[in-house]
Design a protein around this nucleic acid. Sequence first.
DNA 1: GGTTATACATGCGATAACGCATGCATGAAG
DNA 2: CTTCATGCATGCGTTATCGCATGTATAACC
Lengths: 291, 291
Amino acid sequence: MKDAAWDDLKTVMALVRHGSLAAAGAALRLNYTTVARRIARAEAALGTTLFERLKDGYVPTDAAMLVAAHAGEMEVREHDLMRRLAGRDGTLEGALTITAPQLLIAYVLPAALAQFRGLYPKVDLKVRATNDILDLSRREADLGIRISRTPGDTLTGLRLAEQHSASFASPGWAERIAKDPGAPIDWILYETHDDVPKAAREAYPSSRVQYRFDDMIAMAGAAQAGLGVVRMPMFLGRSLPGLMQVPLLPPQPYMDVWMVAHPDVWPGAKVRAFRDVLKADMKTRRALFVA
Amino acid sequence: MKDAAWDDLKTVMALVRHGSLAAAGAALRLNYTTVARRIARAEAALGTTLFERLKDGYVPTDAAMLVAAHAGEMEVREHDLMRRLAGRDGTLEGALTITAPQLLIAYVLPAALAQFRGLYPKVDLKVRATNDILDLSRREADLGIRISRTPGDTLTGLRLAEQHSASFASPGWAERIAKDPGAPIDWILYETHDDVPKAAREAYPSSRVQYRFDDMIAMAGAAQAGLGVVRMPMFLGRSLPGLMQVPLLPPQPYMDVWMVAHPDVWPGAKVRAFRDVLKADMKTRRALFVA
DNA sequence: GGTTATACATGCGATAACGCATGCATGAAG
DNA sequence: CTTCATGCATGCGTTATCGCATGTATAACC
């Protein structure tokens, strides 16, 4: 048993994590046959069976779990290294990955992205629109824009904007509410909310929950289609065509918009450049976010 | 900058450690051209210059030092993994590396080695004779035999024998000392010792230092050739032809013989088998080591 | 001044690693 | 019962990687 090939250890880890040759191969950007071959190599090198080949796939043995655990620790060190290299990198070229909620990318960021692109054409800007929070420690992205109350404990952050939320609906609903405030009002709620906001229920007792969604884009679409009233951030209601603010809810504070990055990565030239552009851009847009 | 190839990180580390392409290649068992190519790949992947190509070789940049440091931490994890795999391995086949001082291997271990070989023919036994202490944590060897006072803090150990040392010389010297105890006596000292052992100086005031060596095999050879008297472990003086114990020094306690291994590796089947064989063998040889 | 050793660059042929296409087994869905 | 999707094995042609041989530059030594 000599020195193990590190890339093979990584491959064992990927297979343990992802469960199938194909999934592991996709994660490693390799053909799954290559994964199978590397597993075979690793088993030969380590002198141990790492996976049992069953009809429905590769099942890791204890030894494979041990390998995967250690490879995971190696990976932590690799990510640490990558962050530090990115943080000390002074060039304004190469890849820069940012992540943000879909709706911010769609309705708020385009101007800043275009400006950044013009200023730093050599930077390969990759934008990952996702509502899942990517792991900035693992360098799934260099810089994140998040809607939350704090930047998070391990991340360095900068508050880009305070936000308010309000109630929005189609013009038809706005008219109806103005004419007859006592008529039934249909609400579309985000799934985590139990009930219509208390202020609305008190002022408009005829409020009723009609739909529960798990996705804000879908909710906004439903509101545009006239299915009901949605509480959403000011910027979103104002940005979407076919929606108007309705007076059911007084504007109230919402989670702020933060720009965050891992402290290792924060001082990198590309991250710094993007920060500066976005910070200045957002300064001009503050009115969009508050009542 | 995407995921780095771990083997390339390892290669950067090897080049930083060993200083030249050729030395790094030797350490990795690769041709040095391959090392050069991997460095180039790593630089492309990381988007950084890692080494400056000067007339007299590759000089690492700060970035390379950073990479090397992190790769070193990855390597610690790898060695940890290898030890654990070895420790849980129940097979009695494959590689087993032991290390011991040259003189023990030459004059004490052969019987045990032969017996082990007969009992476990499928084990690839590699014996590394060295006076440097190999790093058992880094798996330079699985099991070590050492002459020391303790097994060391991080290692598990078993005392194989207590030892005495005494003074030995050629038959000519033995005769001379017996005839005329007052005549000048030439000593061959190990370089770390300042002077003739105090007991000998007091009993034989005509003792004088004639040579200082840094190698016990050479000293023994010189003693066999009649150049003088050497203080050495009993087992050695008794094992070497052409040497006799001389009464200049009363036998005195010497460092013990230990068998040591990293606790992770200790329970491995091959290590355990070797331990048992050697332990039993050494039990029959205890008289060789003490006065 | 010529010889030797070290350290690297470069080009070429050999080899090992890889991707792709095909085929088989299994289980779920229509 | 058929169809489709998932998961893997195997064989083949391609690509990338590697080792080797050769050449250059520099420094050390006699």
